[in-house]
Design a protein around this nucleic acid. Structure first.
Length: 184
DNA sequence: CCGCTGATAATCT
DNA sequence: GATTATCAGCGGA
């Protein structure tokens, strides 16, 4: 993916990532769900400015921000290149490559739940703090362009307590691999 | 399908 | 010491 792919407003980048392929060491699938976070957004980790944890959010676009949540899961974000402190949370994938590897890591077979959530996706792709700050343009990552413009559904973000009314969650319309359904 | 509960630790106040 | 961008397992419908 060219570097200027990331240099657009974070809501646009969130939509542009839907349908793209995301692989880590050849294992992964198609991004079907994302959420946008940005500086000045009370729900964003970047809201209070740079810290040790969120420094990747203020780094170059096209790199990743990985953090631990609830003491046990990892979450993967794509950092935006248009403004500092903005990133896209990768919430769900449609598994396409390395199904057996992902099933073994997740200790489950059902493809529908393999990557249906940010924590589940990181476990399936074996993404950890070791990846924090790395570029998507180099191994072990691969980000593939989408074959066609997908139809996208929109809704409020999940699991947050602030700025809950912003419709900054995006999904591939009709996908069976979402973390949760979108409201009608 | 849906909602509830407990697990578990880094981060920040 | 409170909060947290979550998940598996369970029970009910």
């Amino acid at each position: 993916m060219p570097p200027d792919f990331y240099a657009r407003p974070i809501l646009d980048l969130s939509r542009a990532l839907i349908g793209c392929g995301l692989l880590v060491d050849g294992v992964g699938g198609v991004i079907v769900e994302t959420e946008a976070y940005e500086a000045g957004d009370p729900a964003s980790h970047s809201f209070a400015g740079p810290t040790a944890r969120n420094r990747a959010m203020f780094g170059p676009g096209g790199h990743v921000y990985v953090y631990r949540i609830y003491g046990m899961h990892w979450c993967l974000n794509v950092v935006g290149g248009s403004a500092p402190g903005a990133a896209v949370l990768v919430r769900a994938l449609e598994p396409t490559s390395g199904l057996e590897t992902m099933a073994a890591r997740r200790r489950m077979k059902d493809p529908r739940r393999l990557c249906a959530g940010p924590g589940r996706s990181c476990e399936a792709l074996d993404v950890t703090r070791a990846h924090d700050g790395l570029s998507l343009g180099a191994p072990p990552f691969t980000l593939l362009p989408r074959p066609a413009e997908p139809r996208i559904v929109v809704g409020p973000r999940i699991g947050i307590t602030k700025a809950t009314d912003r419709p900054w969650r995006f999904g591939l319309a009709g996908s069976r691999f979402l973390s949760r359904p979108f409201p009608r």
